[in-house]
Design a protein around this nucleic acid. Sequence first.
DNA 1: ATGAAAGCGCTAACAC
DNA 2: GTGTTAGCGCTTTCAT
Lengths: 349, 349
Amino acid sequence: MAKRPTVYDVAEDAGVSIATVSFAFAKPEKVRAETLRTVLASAARLGYVPSANARGLAKGHTRALGLYSFDYLRKNTPQEALASPDRDDGRLFPLYADVIQRGVELECLDQGYALMLGAGSSAPNRAPVVDVAGRVDGLITFVGAAHPDLLQQVARRIPVIQLGGEAATAGTHTVLVDGTSAMHQLADHLLTVHGYRDIAFVGDASRPEFRQRLAGLTQRLVEAGLAAPPVLPGRPDINEVTTQTIRRLVECDELPDALVCSTDQEALAVLDALRSAGKRAPEDVAVTGFDGILAGRLSEPTLTTLRQPMETVGRTAVQLMTTLIDGGSVPEQGAGLECTLTIGHSCGC
Amino acid sequence: MAKRPTVYDVAEDAGVSIATVSFAFAKPEKVRAETLRTVLASAARLGYVPSANARGLAKGHTRALGLYSFDYLRKNTPQEALASPDRDDGRLFPLYADVIQRGVELECLDQGYALMLGAGSSAPNRAPVVDVAGRVDGLITFVGAAHPDLLQQVARRIPVIQLGGEAATAGTHTVLVDGTSAMHQLADHLLTVHGYRDIAFVGDASRPEFRQRLAGLTQRLVEAGLAAPPVLPGRPDINEVTTQTIRRLVECDELPDALVCSTDQEALAVLDALRSAGKRAPEDVAVTGFDGILAGRLSEPTLTTLRQPMETVGRTAVQLMTTLIDGGSVPEQGAGLECTLTIGHSCGC
DNA sequence: ATGAAAGCGCTAACAC
DNA sequence: GTGTTAGCGCTTTCAT
């Protein structure tokens, strides 16, 4: 890495000015063929690689998009066997966020944008979200991955799109998934097909998707003349919490007809917890998830869940972003993308 | 995105110099508490986000790594049913490269680096690999994803590490996987446990991993007094090629005892092709793969394969890279990482 | 068609 | 502790 050659080096070597070197790369047609050859030859020989930093600085944009995600979503949480022997450690893969990310990657590729990945906590202090924001023309982030204040700050500089949640931070755009109507479908299935009446909700109230999903469920239960579902604590990232919840339920012999979980990860944790508590799903209690991750189709029993159009979410975000960057305007919240009720064995079907 | 505030704006607003603003962020302890508060307040109010481009330019590095991969590996190739209903389209996921990428991502996160993703063809012309190379402190690339000449050029500027292949381009480092000894294991299994004698190899000779794997197999066959295996054309990215190959074999009634495929994707394609030709594995012919992707564990029959430590490959690359960036030195080719023989049903077990 | 020169936003000496 | 200033490497008028 001795000396990174610059335009100056190339210019000198080729016996032209730096402007010509620049043009040779940017607008080859504006340079005489002869000169062009000389310059390109020098560049190749010297091993010239243009600095995207300098270019970005000069042009005011970088042709790169940023994707910011939770760090805890990406950490490895030890899990049960089905948790992919495919991996060196225990984390389930691919998770919800992984598939969305894939959509983002693919669409960036298609649109000719580079993608900068970053992740971190949602702590309000010097967060890395600003770090990635400073490098790109637009920032896509999972709802809740970064502190709203920070995002709002970033949004004054570049377009910001939040993924998969409801409600946007001011100045920010959102790709919506219709969690409410999705839950309606599930509730209808549980109520009508299975005739369950005693239904509880398991989830982490601090997660952004929680409220909407719970609301959707509650709505249908109430419409059916039932009480709002009890909410049991669970945390997709800390199985222990879920385990405690289930143990308590089992010890008090208070298992409901069905445990509707806020996410698939949560549901899988519930399935594990039930198993170790000596109970079975769906015989002793029905269990459902939300998201439609791969692991849910491999679990025993297979998970009844609401499958989100994950890749589409990612691709849509990038499409909105490029529109925004090109000066176009898009509604702050697009129509919510639809989820698909996917029936597995865990609901009793 | 009206006006992206800069250090100048913040400085003016806070009534200090730009140097103080810079210090406030870089070395808060070198600034009087009072001043610090003022500056930070102004920055927050103005929505100041430091430009990583400018910073990178000034400091000479970016704290970002680049990962460059095949575009065709990431495109969607329509596949058979098992090809993951989890997805919006037909591509298998996660593939070999996806899991390695995950390892890279995770390790970057751990080390505090941002990750820039890029992909493209291996065409020698204005390739995007240079584009991502220009933005980062180090470039990790899949063997064969970028043209060697280009890589060599890039390597004069920043450290370059190639993934998963043998042989490095000059000036480049490599994370090796020991494909040869892996193939030995498989060959021994096929030869000893199953007693197969008539073994053929299926793969794309233009792919970098091809040679090593074929060599490993050939070696053992020859040692066992057999002829070198015939090589049948297949291309992991174009099922049609594999289909043709299998059809021809079946029509001529020349199916060998076993078809050793260069990759899992190839093996899955072979399985499909056999099925549509009315033949079955492992009854009519044994089939094996290489890589250990998820889809191979979900296929029918499950695939006997050599599982690469994919996540470890990715993490190792990042570790080498940071060592290199910090001025350390590492051997051009580390010891090859070991693969694990994973027995499925496709070999007849 | 090519060159000269003025920034782009930030960091890092070096002064004060 | 804070301000001045000279770059970092490239793009881009504006001349020539």
